Every structure is written in structure tokens, then in C-alpha cells.
Amino acid sequence: MADGKEIGLMILRLLVGLLYTVYCMLEALVLTLIPRRYRRKNIKGNIALVTGGGSGIGRLMCRQLAAKGAIVVTWDVNEAGNLETVRQVVEKGGQCRAYTVDLCNRHAIYSTATRVKEEVGKVDILINNAGVVTGKNLLDCPDESIIRTFDVNILSHFWTTKAFLGDMISRGKGHIVTIASAAGKFPCNRLVDYCSSKYAAVGFDDTLRLELMAEGHTGIKTTVVCPVFITTGMFEGFQSKYFPILKPEYVAEEVVDAMLLNTPVLMLPYTLKINLLLNLILPQKVLLYLSNVLDITHSMDNFVGRRKNQ
């Protein structure tokens, strides 16, 4: 049982916390008034590794990072796509190296990470972007597909981060970006495995950020990205009457900018924050009713996914 002194100290800490909250809110307000170009950090010469860099927003982020002066490393299981990313980056005057990696294979991740350190250098920016989707009801989803979803969408984050975080800690700087999804905040029909993996990705970033702070590694930043679905072909057939489907160029630009601004959480579109607030305060029955009214329960009915030639 806490004594009077301990209770008094706790009350004092809570008051300090209240003042700190007000300060942080004012700081956030002031920062929104300062143009982004004055707040971005310089990553020229930094080594930036992007998983899933052989297509989609991964490729677009590789191009943007190279344009900012970073030395880009792209990891993808698709060798042809990876090489095409290198070609596009080099064509624009950037530096890029490609490594064919199966992110379902923990040992392949560790061995390739060792090669990157030897052949390119220590990674400063890690963007865990690779993702897969099955798009089937739970009972129709093969066990192997569920395992693959978790291997790529979340477990690979653990292995890549373990491979490169130690070097970041030794140098006192670095940035880890987790590409999650709005599906990591809000459920969607026929996406039990996908949403679960993205919920885990959000939790991974939240907890990693807290752990780094608790251990005093304040020079290492993390960013989690939660966009709604993107027109990359990964969710081909997804339909929504009320929610936007984002352009990959926009998402890639916002993700890179969030990293440059050390933004902890990026939700796209920004109005998702309102949805998140409603998700916290509304009863579960109301949320299920709204899901049906907004046709979320049928948005995956015509899903076909990424075609092999994409």
C-alpha cells in the first residue's frame, strides 16, 4: 500500500505530465505552421534499405530516397522487379543495389543482411514495406497462405530489425519505418489474416518505439504508416463507395516525408484519425452497423489481387 509521500509524489508527477501534454500540443501546433522544407532531415549519403522494393510503393520510395541523396538497397523476392527498380534509380542518377531475398526465410534475411553490411555498408534507414494479401474468408484460406501472410507482413520485421538495429544503436542514430495499413486499425471482411498481421505491425512499431526510449536510444526514430488501400494492384478488385483508394505516388511521397520529418505515426488520408476516435468511443454494435451501412462488409467481394504480370 502506498504511503502519503508516495501518493503526493504521484500527484506531482501527474501535474507535470499535464503541463507536458499542453507543451506537446502547442509544439505540434507550431510545427504545423512551419513549412516542411525547413524541418526535413538530411539523408544524403545514408544507406536506406527497402523491403519489397521491386514494385509498387516500394519502388517509388526507392526512387524518392535516391533523389534525396540516399544510397538505396532494395530487397525483393522478384529478381526481375528488383533489377527494374535499380535501372530506374540509376537512370535518374541515383545509387541502388538489389538483393533477391525470400522474406519468409529468416536465415536468408540474416545472411543477406550480412552481405549488405560487407558490400554496401551499415544501414541507416530500414523501411519494412513488403506485404502480401490472400483476400479469402478464414475457412477458405489455406494454412500455408496464412503462414506466408504473417511471415512477410510482420515476422520479417523482427528479423530485419534485429539484423540492423544493433548497428544503429552503436552509432546512436537510425530510422525504422513500418508500413502497416489502416487495416491494422480497422477490421475488414475477408481479411482476417491480413488485418491481424497489420494489427501486429502497428503493435510492433508502438512497442519498439517505447523500448528504444526506455533504453535511452533517443537518436533512433520509428515511423508507422497506416494508409487505406492503394492502387498498386495488390488489392485489385477491392471496391469502396465511401473510402478513397490512394495513388501509390502520393503514398510513397508522404511516407518518405514522414521519415524525413521524424513523424511517429502517419495515417493516410489524415481524416482516418476521426475514424480512429469514433472507433474508440462508439459501442461495438454501432461499429458493426456502420460497417454494414458503409458497405465495408462487401468491399472485398470482387477481389482478385495482384496478377502475375504486374
Rank of each mutant, 00 (worst) to 15 (best):
A2N: 11
A2Y: 11
G8Y: 12
L9E: 15
M10F: 14
V16C: 07
V16W: 11
L18V: 15
L19K: 13
T21N: 06
M25D: 09
L31E: 14
I34P: 11
P35E: 07
R36K: 13
R37I: 07
Y38Q: 09
K41L: 10
K41I: 15
N42M: 05
I43R: 03
G45D: 04
A48T: 15
V50K: 01
V50P: 01
G56M: 09
G56R: 07
L60M: 15
L60G: 10
M61F: 07
A67E: 08
G69L: 04
A70W: 05
T74L: 07
V77R: 14
V77G: 06
A80K: 12
N82C: 13
N82S: 14
N82G: 15
L83W: 02
V86W: 02
V86L: 07
R87M: 00
R87P: 00
Y99E: 02
T100M: 11
V101S: 01
D102T: 06
C104E: 09
Y110L: 12
Y110C: 05
E119L: 03
K122M: 01
V123Y: 01
N128G: 07
A130K: 03
A130Y: 04
G131R: 04
V132F: 05
G135Y: 11
K136Q: 11
T149K: 02
D151I: 01
V152I: 14
N153D: 05
L155C: 00
H157G: 00
F158V: 12
W159R: 00
A163L: 02
L165P: 00
G166P: 03
I169V: 13
A182C: 10
A183L: 13
G184C: 11
G184A: 11
P187I: 09
R190C: 11
L191P: 05
S196P: 03
S197W: 07
Y199Q: 06
Y199R: 07
D205E: 14
E211L: 10
L212K: 09
E215L: 13
I220E: 06
T222Q: 12
T223D: 12
V224F: 10
V225R: 07
V225H: 09
V225D: 08
P227N: 08
P227Y: 11
V228A: 13
V228N: 14
I230E: 09
G233I: 05
M234I: 13
M234Y: 06
E236M: 12
G237A: 09
P244M: 14
P248A: 09
V251D: 10
V251H: 12
A252N: 03
A258I: 10
L261G: 10
T263F: 06
L268Y: 10
P269M: 12
L272Q: 12
L280K: 13
P283S: 10
P283V: 10
L287T: 08
Y289G: 06
V293Q: 06
V293D: 02
D295G: 08
T297L: 13
H298R: 14
D301H: 12
V304F: 04
K308R: 07
N309E: 15
